[in-house]
């Protein structure tokens, strides 16, 4: 057993788990944050994506022990209070979700894409960047629209502030 301490969504959280426990399992079962999902066994579907120390990672392929000491943001920690994060708002506005199961991973991936590209995104880039996230409901059409819209919103807002 290992004691794992993480800063999750800004709060320090600890738990005991077997060394073989995956970060996704730790987040879901030990911390009770079930927004992070698990949809495959081969690190491909991306429904488990969270941010670790500011970068998107697949929490199903990282041991909780590997993550020990890191800062984790999950889907539950993305929005500020009751107000949706611009990426979440764009997914709602553009119907970028249906069954909702891939959505947390998609949103966390999209947020990371926008961060890395700093506003410079087009459809082709978004589609390429979504390689690690599967959705079976939307055909990606509205997800791509939502990411581009969120990017415009966030980058536009940033420019206006400068």
């Amino acid at each position: 057993m290992t004691k794992v301490t993480l800063t999750v969504n800004g709060r320090k959280m600890s738990g005991e788990c077997a060394d073989r426990t995956l970060l996704s399992t730790f987040i879901r079962e030990n911390l009770g944050l079930t927004g992070t999902h698990v949809g495959c066994d081969t690190t491909q579907c991306g429904v488990c994506v969270v941010h670790m120390d500011g970068k998107s990672v697949k929490s199903c392929t990282i041991l909780a022990a590997q993550a020990n000491g890191s800062e984790i943001t999950t889907i539950e920690g993305l929005s500020k209070g009751d107000e949706l994060h611009p990426v979440q708002a764009a997914f709602k506005e553009h119907h970028g979700l249906q069954c909702g199961f891939c959505t947390p991973g998609m949103v966390m991936a999209a947020t990371d894409i926008i961060r890395r590209h700093g506003g410079n995104l087009d459809e082709k880039t978004v589609r390429a960047e979504l390689e690690g996230n599967l959705c079976r409901c939307t055909g990606y059409h509205n997800i791509v629209k939502a990411v581009l819209a969120a990017n415009a919103e966030m980058y536009g807002a940033k420019q206006a502030a400068e």
């Binding site: 690190t43 491909q44 697949k58």
Partner: peptide, 9 residues
């Protein structure tokens, strides 16, 4: 290689 999340690790 892989996808963006894999490339972070």
């Amino acid at each position: 290689i892989g996808d963006p999340h894999v490339r972070h690790m």
